[in-house]
Design a protein around this nucleic acid. Sequence first.
DNA 1: CTGAAAGCGCTTACAG
DNA 2: CTGAAAGCGCTTACAG
Lengths: 345, 345
Amino acid sequence: MTLKDIAEKAGVSMMTVSNVINGKHSRVSAATIEKVNSIIKEYNYVPNLSARSLTIKSSHIIGVIVPLDDKEDNGTSVSYFDNPYVSSMIGVIERELRDNGYFVMIRAVRSQDDLSILMRNWNVDGAIFLYPRLGDRFEDSINAIVAENHLPVVLFDARTDNPEVINVCSDDRKGCYLSTRYLINRGHKKIAFVANYEGNPLLTDRFEGYRAAMEESGLGCDPDCIFSYSPSYEEGVAAGKAIAASALKITGLVTTADICAIGIMEGARLGGLRIPTDLSVIGYDNLAVSTYTTPKLTTISQNVIKKAETAMELLLEKLRTGYVEQPHVQLDVELVERQSTLSLL
Amino acid sequence: MTLKDIAEKAGVSMMTVSNVINGKHSRVSAATIEKVNSIIKEYNYVPNLSARSLTIKSSHIIGVIVPLDDKEDNGTSVSYFDNPYVSSMIGVIERELRDNGYFVMIRAVRSQDDLSILMRNWNVDGAIFLYPRLGDRFEDSINAIVAENHLPVVLFDARTDNPEVINVCSDDRKGCYLSTRYLINRGHKKIAFVANYEGNPLLTDRFEGYRAAMEESGLGCDPDCIFSYSPSYEEGVAAGKAIAASALKITGLVTTADICAIGIMEGARLGGLRIPTDLSVIGYDNLAVSTYTTPKLTTISQNVIKKAETAMELLLEKLRTGYVEQPHVQLDVELVERQSTLSLL
DNA sequence: CTGAAAGCGCTTACAG
DNA sequence: CTGAAAGCGCTTACAG
């Protein structure tokens, strides 16, 4: 079944059928619309989108891009589709785009070449970069794509000032400011910060929030209280053990990922500390897992759903009008109080 | 840059360029190949896949389908891209398909119409149904698609005997047989089974494993020990409370999802039981979260990665040859021992 | 309100 | 080993 077949059955030209399918009703009489639609229904016709894409030079496909990393140890590669942050975003993205007539193609890319090939292969209408570091890693490539093709691109948590790209972040500084403040307000004085933030702009912002809270309350920012571990479960365990073993009498800590906080709780326990009795812990992300632990984790919520929704609103507007007024938005952040902290007051 | 442009620059016909791109080297001289390739490189040419798709009537796109459910309470809909089981599978699927020259389009579908429109819209080369219940829910639709278009389709955990569809399951019966046996071997006598298995073939298989283990060891299958709660965290909490409140002196239980087991631990604790001292718990799935709880969860691993890999092997073979010898495979299952059970011996 | 023609960028027989 | 032509299924000016 093609346009041509439908046109013949209906006794009209292909162009007329095309017009009714595309809702250009001003150009077709009501009777014709009626007739054509009934034939379409009867034969269960569905347009071939490759053909349409070829003529209108736009596919209505949006590429959702995730980085592809090579693992040094065993030669395999990892993508990030199973990262909980990434996969909740994909759910929202798919829904919003589907509701607006777009299709989503997912792809892990290793290099800038991979990326640009994909974009041009399919005449992609836009691209969404799903992992924070991507914004920086592919910065040149992204700027090139945007410049050449005027292609809508959305980034998350990137440091870009290119007004052509959409960028949605959260208030990372405030996140750790809030968690640190929360502990200070409950009488904690020796508060650790756990993350290898150096060289990572996003984590550095969070660190700045911690530092600001410590300094403004006169506690100061003791370098010994900074534990440089990366935000994974395993590293968290190591950090937790280190804290338990330290002579600093740390009573509370803030970190930059729930997974890490969960590891820290485990490591601290293995080191003999009770949570929260001996050590208060605050995570970051408010992932579902943060409610599955014992004690349930107090954490910073960056409202991932809203983040994705905001980005999709902007993307759809750019797709529609070619322009968005405010392409860079920063979302607020809040503390979710659960059970992993103790007040010393 | 199109084929035509490249052909002109190289001073050959479009067809020759096409042949070198598609590796039909027998039809082109080495010198020509050399020349054409260098021009392609120089101008950074990338073929338009919509056009190719249109002529060869195959897109190299594989649809990854997830169900779209309407929530009764608030009118919104949920897809399952953020389900940990689904998202780990997507990671593997994307990798295998990408490595073999395919593209993956993800889509949540509500009805059989949604589905068939998508398939035909894009001339999809194959479809993967990612959520267990899908196999049954869209059974007619799937059979129709397969019959009409001879389209490779892969299902997981489905009850189908259609030899045209690929179906990868795990040994569900054995899963709960193993977990139940494990408790029996450690002296447990009152062992509960938690799941609303009735009407659900997959969960019924797991229940049968539990029952077989109980009966073969002479403990029998006491209906009072069956707790009919669905496999979610919230329902798990309710089940845990119910078990804590019951007069049955249950000392151990098996269930059909880690999330549910985690809820059960929480509910049981709220009901005053210590895990595993008063109650041993075994989960199912071996999700990452099962290592984040306290105590870490003993559980049944169904090796999700292998499941997805096996399915992709079969799919790729079917895509290549149109046929697979053994389209229905059942994978083995194993118990992963951690900390959530206690031996009574 | 409707139609005939050209064209999007590719591949596939068919000739040479 | 290479090429000219037709065609995949659609949409877009251009005419009427």
